[in-house]
């Protein structure tokens, strides 16, 4: 069983995924060390997002395995994978994906509340992160009432709220202009480094990949040399 807050190695070995006749992953191997920031790049259709979904336990591979430290996670039941994602992973998607009916503050507190943490603790952590990300004064607004960049910073705060082992980011700045994108990336990578979370980040932009410690380049569902 994984422990929330502890930092672990994430390893995908010989991963294969097919969608009908389309081969999305074809024997991909990747290891993410604790605290490491890794960018996944590759042409359209090379399997970038599929690899991220498999490593994050959202998608089950047809072949191969995914381990978080010693624990194999790809063959867990749906409910156990879901619970593991909540405890050990954080997510930043291209369009923020915040709950539109909740304020930024409530969105950031959500993972902690779902994990059963006391309200006061969630409140404290939410305020701390929203402050770090310079959106504290917008805490009571809903995602639709703030700019795309501000919403994405709140999404970063939400991803970090429960101090996950790994944060998965799929084109985290894809919907932002370059300046707003830089603010989000500085926040995401800066705070992840400070708190020891790993980041796996899919991007097609080299300037985004430059924030990572290294880049994994995919071609035809495999990691290119």
């Amino acid at each position: 069983m994984t422990t929330q807050g502890s930092k672990m190695t994430l390893q995908g070995s010989d991963l294969a995924v097919r969608f009908g006749r389309t081969v999305a992953l074809d024997g991909a191997d990747v290891t993410i060390s604790p605290g490491e920031i890794v960018a996944i790049m590759g042409p359209s259709g090379s399997g970038k997002s599929t690899l991220l979904h498999v490593l994050a336990g959202i998608l089950r591979p047809a072949h191969g395995e995914v381990r978080l430290d010693a624990q194999r996670i790809d063959n867990l039941s749906d409910s156990r994978r879901s619970s593991l994602r909540l405890r050990s992973f954080g997510f930043v998607l291209q369009f923020g994906d915040l709950v539109p009916e909740l304020s930024l503050r409530e969105n950031v507190e959500l993972p902690l509340r779902l994990l059963g943490r006391p309200r006061a603790e969630a409140r404290r952590r939410g305020a701390e992160l929203l402050g770090h990300l310079a959106v504290a004064e917008l805490a009571d607004r809903r995602p639709g009432q703030v700019s795309g960049g501000e919403a994405q910073r709140a999404a970063v705060a939400r991803a970090l709220a429960h101090k996950p082992s790994v944060i998965f980011a799929d084109e985290p700045t894809g919907a932002l202009d370059s300046v707003a994108g830089e603010v989000v990336l500085d926040a995401l990578t800066g705070l992840a480094r400070k708190e020891g979370s790993s980041v796996v980040m899919v991007t097609h932009e080299a300037r985004v990949a430059a924030y990572a410690d290294r880049t994994v380049f995919l071609r035809d569902g495999r990691v290119a040399a």
């Binding site: 080299a206 300037r207 990949a209 380049f217 040399a225």
Partner: peptide
């Protein structure tokens, strides 16, 4: 030519990482 382009891509990305650190 593919391995050559892969090596060049890595060299470019390494340089971009250096520049980003300088920039920061």
């Amino acid at each position: 030519a593919e391995p050559m382009l892969d090596r060049q891509r890595h060299a470019h990305l390494d340089r971009m990482r250096e520049l980003r650190a300088q920039r920061q």
